[in-house]
């Protein structure tokens, strides 16, 4: 059945019900029969049950009538102002979409200029502004802390510490901005198929030596390192931020610094992913986050 039919169906049923309720209410209080009865002392209804049982016949208190009447009036006023009677939109033309659009516009008018103001400031100005840094901290808590932790120190041997000096994908403002915006995908191959267990152990030793800052040039496994690992980690182990190859010459190892973790990493490889936030965050938010992150690191 067509849309119009149901629109009228709803409207007519609603109005008929309202009218019917009004009539029942009025009639119950003000029919001539009823009023005569109400004046009698000890009034009783005419109905007799079981030969001699009679029901008291007094009407309900009059304030009930006023209550019911005001509810009916309120219903009618509501249906005139707001949508309810079929397709009739109501005199106020109210809808939750309009309300949302208006509030979003008001929100934009309040905060739009403030967002613009952040974009024209430079990073050191932002970092000096305590209120803005508080906002940035809350943004970090909302969007970043699930992985990097509320204190930005990283978590779960998976998500990097953002307060130290190691930046796998580069630590300049431009690098960090790009990391947040575009995300990063890191793939380290696993070498279990190519290396023998001895080679895996020797390579683990080499990585441990490197992270202590000791020279590994003399180690017999170094040529294999040069052939297999140097492309991403560089011959001297200092890493390559363009490829996301971490620096191996410090004791910071994302997936664990103990021997077993390092051996596992070499054998099985690792996959790390930072999601892209460019659709979730706007330029202002990203700028504030970069400012906050670079302010808090060593």
């Amino acid at each position: 059945m067509p849309f119009e039919f149901w629109s009228w169906w709803v409207a007519i049923l609603t109005l008929t019900s309202l009218f019917g309720l009004g009539w029942v209410t009025y009639s119950a209080y003000f029919s001539p029969d009823r009023r005569a009865k109400a004046d009698e002392e000890g009034a009783q209804s005419d109905t007799v049950w079981d030969q001699n049982l009679r029901e008291g016949g007094r009407p309900a208190p009059i304030w009930w009538f006023w209550l019911l009447l005001s509810l009916l009036v309120a219903s009618v006023v509501y249906l005139m102002l707001y949508p309810g009677l079929g397709v009739f939109q109501g005199a106020l033309n109210w809808s939750s979409d309009h309300r949302l659009a208006n509030r979003l516009m008001a929100y934009e008018m309040t905060f739009g200029p403030k967002r613009e103001a952040v974009l024209v400031k430079n990073y050191s100005e932002l970092q000096a502004d305590e209120d803005l840094m508080k906002i940035a901290e809350r943004l970090f808590g909302e969007h970043c802390a699930a992985c990097h932790g509320l204190d930005a120190r990283g978590q779960a041997n998976r998500f990097p510490n953002l307060t130290d000096s190691e930046w796998i994908w580069g630590g300049t403002i431009g690098d960090i901005d790009k990391t947040i915006r575009e995300g990063r995908t890191a793939n380290m191959a696993g070498w279990a198929d190519s290396f023998s267990d001895d080679e895996l152990n020797l390579m683990t030793d080499l990585v441990l030596e490197m992270s202590r800052g000791e020279s590994v040039e003399e180690l017999p496994i170094k040529p294999l390192y040069d052939a297999s690992c140097a492309a991403c980690h560089e011959a001297d182990g200092t890493g390559n931020p363009l490829l996301g190859g971490p620096d191996l010459t410090n004791d910071i190892h994302l997936y664990g610094s103990d021997r077993a973790s390092i051996k596992y990493t070499i054998a099985q490889g690792r996959n790390g992913e930072m999601p892209a936030f460019k659709t979730l965050l706007d330029n202002t938010e990203i700028k504030l986050l970069v400012a906050w992150i670079t302010k808090n690191r060593k």
Binding site: C147, A156, E273, P275
Partner: peptide, 21 residues
């Protein structure tokens, strides 16, 4: 969807406290 990585979701489902103390 896609707000977190698969790996984060896995860690979080197995033990939420590992990533959200």
């Amino acid at each position: 969807g896609e707000k977190y990585t698969d790996e984060w979701q896995r860690i979080h489902l197995v033990n939420p406290r590992a990533v959200v103390p």
